[in-house]
């Protein structure tokens, strides 16, 4: 494949007075498109296989009734969607996904921000603190949910043993909806807050120190500096964190799958877990497809909201942004 620039030694020597001809001329005129096609072609094909095609398929699935993997699917228009909003099992699962997602994201951001503020102080041994707080993020979900299950075990649970030793009645965590949600939220916070703190920390450290100096010269105190310099400075990262956090949080299911298994009586079931149950265990492909489209609609609303906020914010705050010109 000829991929030399036209000014390279060989091409320059062999070039006629009229300039390069044939393939070389074609290549020189369309260099960018050709290289892009060579690189993006296989990538796009791969992407179609693992993401594009299955996603499109998933959207179509919502319009079919498909009970068994061997039976042929039947087109039922919007029946699955109508069923979704009539059956409390489904819309309650969606509602649970949203409010648990909001709760987890809110607490995560708040705690993460306070921790990041403390990490931003020039403390002795802050690399150790950073590592300690980030440890849960790198751990495996299956391994750590097992530990949570050991803590909450009915027979020999660590927390119940502690409660018994203090002289109170042990709590049957698995039989209570409130406690089930509580432990799901606690696990999510434990796993997520370190990453959020590090994200905030990156945002805090990206604020231009000159702005602080300028504020100091203007006689601003600590609180004023925080309010007028720090907060506007971290706004882009805040928007990013809120929206990606929400998008991630409405999709939590591993906690539910491994800690409460949706119980008691499906009362802690979130939508993604329900989709998995429909798809892999009950072979109700149509409802799984329809539910995931509804979930996508929720995520899409968050995403549009995000791009609105993020894009308008960039235009205002960064005049250098805009199409970069070559030459």
């Amino acid at each position: 494949m000829a991929n030399e620039w036209d000014v390279s030694g060989n091409a320059a020597a062999s070039r006629t007075f009229d300039g390069p001809t044939g393939w070389r001329k074609f290549y020189n005129n369309h260099r960018d498109v050709i290289i892009a096609a060579i690189i993006l072609g296989p990538m796009l094909f791969w992407w179609m296989v693992v993401s594009g095609f299955p996603t499109a398929f998933g959207f179509l699935l919502g319009f079919f009734k498909w009970g068994e993997i061997t039976a042929s699917p039947k087109f039922v228009w919007f029946d699955n969607y109508i069923h979704f909003f009539r059956d409390p099992q489904y819309y309650m699962a969606l509602w649970r996904s949203i409010w648990i997602g909001l709760l987890v994201t809110g607490l995560n951001m708040l705690i993460g921000f306070l921790i990041a503020l403390l990490m931003n102080l020039s403390l002795f041994g802050k690399a150790i603190y950073r590592t300690m707080w980030y440890v849960p993020v790198v751990t495996s979900v299956v391994a750590t949910t097992q530990i949570f299950n050991i803590f909450l075990d009915i027979n020999n649970g660590v927390i119940d043993n502690l409660i018994k030793r203090l002289g109170y009645e042990p709590i049957l965590w698995q039989y209570s909806v409130g406690w089930g949600v509580f432990w799901i939220v606690v696990y999510s916070l434990w796993k997520g807050v370190g990453g959020m703190a590090l994200l905030w920390l990156a945002g805090l450290q990206a604020v231009d120190p000159i702005l602080y100096e300028a504020a100091e010269i203007d006689g601003a105190n600590r609180l004023q500096k925080f309010w007028n310099v720090t907060l506007p400075g971290i706004k882009p990262i805040a928007t990013y964190a809120i929206i990606t956090g929400l998008i991630g949080a409405v999709q939590i299911y591993e906690q539910v799958m491994f800690i409460t298994l949706g119980g008691p009586y499906g009362q802690t079931e979130v939508l993604v877990f329900r989709i998995l149950r429909d798809g892999f265990f009950d072979f109700n492909m149509g409802m799984a497809g329809a539910s995931s489209v509804v979930l996508f609609a929720v995520v899409f609303i968050f995403t549009v909201f995000y791009f609105r906020m993020f894009a308008s914010d960039n235009e205002k705050s960064d005049p250098r942004r805009g199409r970069r010109k070559r030459q």
């Binding site: 993401s51 299955p54 996603t55 959207f59 993604v272 989709i275 995931s292 995403t303």
Partner: peptide, 20 residues
Amino acid sequence: FMLATAMIPGVVALIPTYIE
């Protein structure tokens, strides 16, 4: 387009991927 599709919940594609 590619970035937007990266935002689509993975579970949408999970069951179709299995069938695929």
